[in-house]
Amino acid sequence: MSILEAIIIAVVEGLTEFLPVSSTGHMIITQALLGIESTPFVKAFTVIIQFGAILSVVLLYWKRFFRLNPVIIFDKSAVTGMGFVQKGWIFLKRFLHKFDFYWKLFIAVVPAGVLGLIFGDQIDSLLENVLVVSVMLVAGGIVMLFVDTWFNRPVENQSISWQRALKIGFFQCIAMIPGVSRSMATIVGGMSTRLDRKNAAEFSFFLAVPTMAAAAGYKLYQLIKDPASAAMLQENIGVLIIGNVVAFVVAIIAIRFFIDFLTRHGFKAFGWYRIIVGVLLIVLLLSGTVSNVA
């Protein structure tokens, strides 16, 4: 992979990671159009540059991302004479309240983490299938056309409960299929719990941090533990750094655009975009212009 190819893929990652259009799908399409061979390093590159994208979320939302809830103050006289179990429960409630934000993220990331460990090889095999990406782009696009109609009654309470977090986490599992879009799945999941578009999108951004960090970290670990892959990684460290920096800068721009556009116009434009790209890609596949294997 040349530096120019790395920059192009990183731009695609930064632009699409937080939009409901499937960043993985677009990187697979880009890779196919550029004729980049799907080597172990290229596969790892498309995952590891997500570090740069998630750092953009941490930067833009750092006040909320690192904010802890105040400690719940209990009347000491109320716990006098309580047993060990009761006191332990009170301590646990205080702990969960203080780290409530991170606790909800943990709940939401567990379903995808478990399924990722169980079906990792199957998921990796799908990452090379351009036809799967094309079909899922179209299917997801159709869903996007009706999302605003299906979930147009947000409730007044927009806080993230553990039930909401868990439901969004299960929706995120759908995004393991290339072309679905993690952002789309989690935003739709959030809106299905009657969050409004803005809050559903922002929780999707927050959830991306542990989810993508875990995926990128695991891929990096797999590379490092194998001597041959570790040597390959060392040889291409400059390409990885450039890719992450580009993804970071572009993702900041994309997030700012997306929140404003989504609040004003909803999802239909993204739905039509997905359908057009998916249909075009299917036509290119049928004509033999693009190979089905990335």
Rank of each mutant, 00 (worst) to 15 (best):
Ile3Leu: 13
Leu4Tyr: 14
Ile8Val: 15
Ile8Asn: 04
Ile8Ser: 03
Val11Gln: 06
Thr16Met: 11
Glu17Leu: 04
Leu19Ala: 09
His26Asp: 03
His26Gly: 12
His26Arg: 11
Ile29Trp: 09
Leu33Gly: 06
Leu33Met: 13
Leu34Lys: 11
Leu34Glu: 12
Gly35Phe: 05
Phe41Ala: 14
Ala44Gln: 02
Thr46Tyr: 06
Gln50Thr: 11
Leu59Cys: 11
Leu59Ala: 14
Leu59Lys: 11
Tyr61Thr: 03
Lys63Phe: 06
Arg67Met: 12
Leu68Ile: 08
Asn69Met: 14
Ile72Pro: 08
Ile73Ala: 15
Phe74Asp: 05
Lys76Phe: 10
Ala78Pro: 11
Gly81Ile: 03
Met82Gly: 09
Val85Ala: 15
Lys87Val: 15
Phe91Asp: 15
Leu92Asp: 09
Phe95Arg: 12
Leu96Ile: 14
His97Gln: 10
Lys98Cys: 05
Phe99Gly: 10
Asp100Asn: 12
Tyr102Ile: 13
Leu105Trp: 03
Phe106Glu: 02
Ala112Asp: 07
Leu115Gly: 00
Gly116Met: 01
Asp121Gly: 09
Gln122Thr: 09
Glu128Ser: 14
Glu128Pro: 10
Val130Ser: 00
Ser134Pro: 07
Met144Thr: 10
Asp148Cys: 00
Thr149Lys: 15
Arg153Cys: 05
Val155Glu: 14
Val155Arg: 14
Asn157Gln: 04
Ala165Gln: 02
Lys167Glu: 11
Lys167Met: 00
Phe171Asp: 01
Cys173Gln: 06
Ile174Phe: 15
Ala175Glu: 01
Gly179Met: 00
Arg182Trp: 04
Arg182Gly: 03
Ile187Ala: 08
Met191Val: 04
Leu195Gln: 09
Asp196Tyr: 08
Arg197Tyr: 12
Arg197Lys: 15
Lys198Trp: 12
Glu202Gly: 13
Phe203His: 03
Ser204Val: 00
Phe206Gly: 01
Leu207Tyr: 06
Leu207His: 02
Ala208Tyr: 07
Val209Asn: 03
Ala214Lys: 05
Ala215Lys: 04
Leu220Gln: 03
Gln222Leu: 11
Ala228Trp: 10
Ala228Ile: 15
Asn236Asp: 05
Asn236Phe: 01
Ile237Glu: 10
Val239Glu: 04
Val239Leu: 14
Val246Tyr: 01
Phe248Ser: 01
Val250Arg: 00
Val250Tyr: 01
Val250Ser: 02
Ala254Thr: 05
Ile255Leu: 07
Phe258Val: 05
Leu262Gly: 11
His265Met: 14
Gly266Ala: 00
Phe267Val: 13
Ala269Met: 06
Gly271Tyr: 05
Ile276His: 13
Ile276Ala: 13
Val277Tyr: 00
Val279Ser: 04
Leu281Gln: 00
Val283Phe: 11
Leu286Gln: 08
Ser287Met: 06
Ser287His: 03
Gly288Val: 12
Thr289Trp: 14
Ser291Phe: 09
Val293Ile: 05
